Simulated assay, not measured.
Amino acid sequence: MTSVVSRELDPRLLEHRRELTGYCYRMLGSAFDADDAVQETMVRAWRGLGDFEGRSALRSWLYRIATNVCLDQLSGRQRRALPMDLSGSPWQPVEASLASRRPGTAWVEPILDRQVVADDADPAEQAVQRESIRLAFVAALQHLPPRQRAVLLLREVLRWKADEVAQLLDTTVASVNSALQRARATLSDLGARPEPRQLDDDDQDLLDRYVDAFERYDIDAFVALLHEDATQHMPPYEMWLRGPADIGTWMLGPGSKCRGSRVLPTRANGSLAFAQYRAREGGGREPWALHVLEVDAGRIARISSFLDLDTGLFVRLGLPAELD
């Protein structure tokens, strides 16, 4: 039993857990599927560690296992998406727009930066890691066939050499280069190539003003912080909104129950974010939505509001289950 426990806690495996979670998240588009994939990777590695002879680096071996686990998970699955991927036109800011809803497995899901971004990485590497988990990029990755997805991530995010990727996928360098070229073309058509950027003081000030307006429920001040083409979507609902006017109308109408909420600032998908706790009847506040914000030209350009509802989103992300 002692040997089993020691192997389960082998730091050679556990030290790679965070980066493997980031890789599996980009592959699968779900933090929770990524956790499952990494757990399966660790189990398979634990079972094979005694036979691992060091013919390749341990990290490469783990990525080979993780890639195979992800490819297995993706087999036969429909791609995850964001609401704007499903409809080219915005919806009306009315209650009836909530009629269309899809299960959680249909949507790209959020992930907290702390789950995948290394604390000890240099700032430039952290910027790359954050940019490669942005929602738009992760959603675009879901358009790629699984093996193309793996090639692009290994080559362009993790910066592996073509021959290393070929060895991992049991294919040729020519096949890897061809897959990478096709993947790049698809992402270019979607306008989703990542461009690393740093969070600056102006972004933090914008978040502070945004949170202040939201908690006071001053909608005039709130919409003044939005880009003229700002969008908001709210999985698991298919609806999405465009423009400060419609977003403000929604918040004063169907969304008015959010009045009196309190928020917990955080970072998710490489972006500013906050967890919203809505007032509960009888007192206290309950998890309601994780809002991931995208900034453009000093204004909020996209609000991705992932509703907790009955999904247990906050608990699964490690956020507080309630806020007093």
Score class of each variant (00 low, 15 high):
2 T>Q: 13
2 T>M: 07
3 S>V: 08
4 V>W: 03
6 S>M: 12
11 P>H: 05
11 P>R: 08
13 L>W: 01
16 H>W: 15
19 E>G: 08
22 G>F: 07
27 M>N: 06
30 S>E: 03
31 A>N: 13
35 D>R: 14
36 D>S: 14
39 Q>N: 14
43 V>W: 05
51 D>A: 14
54 G>E: 12
55 R>M: 02
56 S>E: 15
56 S>Y: 07
59 R>D: 10
63 Y>G: 02
63 Y>I: 03
69 V>C: 09
73 Q>G: 03
80 R>P: 03
83 P>F: 05
91 W>Q: 06
91 W>E: 08
95 E>G: 01
95 E>I: 10
98 L>H: 15
101 R>W: 01
107 W>S: 11
108 V>F: 04
109 E>A: 10
109 E>M: 11
110 P>G: 03
111 I>E: 03
116 V>K: 00
122 D>Q: 08
127 A>D: 14
128 V>S: 05
130 R>M: 08
137 F>R: 00
138 V>F: 13
141 L>P: 00
144 L>E: 04
145 P>G: 08
149 R>P: 11
149 R>V: 09
150 A>L: 10
152 L>R: 06
153 L>N: 07
158 L>F: 14
161 K>R: 15
163 D>C: 03
164 E>N: 06
166 A>I: 11
171 T>H: 10
172 T>W: 15
175 S>N: 10
179 A>P: 00
180 L>T: 08
182 R>C: 03
184 R>V: 06
185 A>T: 02
185 A>G: 11
185 A>M: 01
188 S>T: 15
188 S>G: 15
194 P>V: 04
196 P>M: 02
198 Q>L: 05
198 Q>G: 03
201 D>H: 06
201 D>C: 00
202 D>T: 13
202 D>K: 10
203 D>F: 14
204 Q>M: 13
206 L>F: 15
207 L>V: 01
212 D>H: 09
212 D>S: 13
216 R>E: 13
218 D>G: 11
219 I>A: 02
219 I>P: 01
221 A>S: 13
226 L>M: 15
228 E>Y: 11
229 D>V: 04
231 T>I: 09
237 Y>K: 01
239 M>N: 11
239 M>W: 07
241 L>E: 00
244 P>W: 09
253 G>C: 10
254 P>K: 05
254 P>C: 10
255 G>L: 08
265 P>M: 04
268 A>M: 01
270 G>F: 02
272 L>Q: 06
273 A>H: 02
275 A>N: 02
276 Q>N: 11
278 R>Q: 13
279 A>N: 04
282 G>R: 09
282 G>E: 11
283 G>W: 05
285 R>G: 03
291 H>R: 07
293 L>T: 04
294 E>Q: 12
298 G>W: 08
302 R>L: 13
306 F>D: 01
306 F>G: 04
308 D>V: 01
310 D>N: 12
310 D>M: 04
312 G>M: 04
314 F>P: 06
314 F>G: 01
315 V>W: 12
315 V>Y: 12
316 R>V: 05
317 L>Q: 11
319 L>F: 15
324 D>Y: 12
324 D>V: 04
